[in-house]
Amino acid sequence: MKKVLIWGGLAILLVILALGLNKSQQGQVSVGQPAPDFALTSFDGEEYHLADLQGKVVVINFWASWCTSCKPEAVDLENAWRNYQGEVVFLGVDYVDTEPEAKAYLAEFDITYPNGPDKRTKISQAYRVQGVPETFIIDKSGTIAHVQIGPFYSYDEIIYIIEPLLTE
């Protein structure tokens, strides 16, 4: 009986460690996996559910106002969004940020696509985001088609990834 307890305890500990290790080694949700669903309430109060956006290409960009490397890509993302005129959905998820600064950031880069706070870090956890910026591009069937770790370096880079997804 005692032995069962001891070995059981050891087994439980090892399982916890293994699961924890697995989680830490996993990295972001990867290309080919179904995109985890989420609800985002934008700063304007609109609600967005990923599930409602089936059939459209969706770009989810994780950013924060305190993030320096997010700034260069902000304009490119906004231009890409304008280029597609709503044909492609852009959602900005504001990770661990403060509202006044976030709104100032949106105003500074004149960002017009919907953006909202990542409440209780639920969305970033679902996508296993490890830092900002990270961008996930989802194809029409709701599958992750591209994971961008770190910023995009040009407008063309974004368009180049999105174009083939539109013709699928």
Partner: peptide
């Protein structure tokens, strides 16, 4: 390694300097 904030938070101390005069 990516130059991400979360992994090297200390980099951000730099921004303190730049932004200090502005907020609030």
């Amino acid at each position: 390694m990516r130059p991400f904030e979360r992994q090297s938070p200390i980099i951000f101390l730099g921004i303190i300097l730049l932004s200090l005069g502005l907020p609030h």
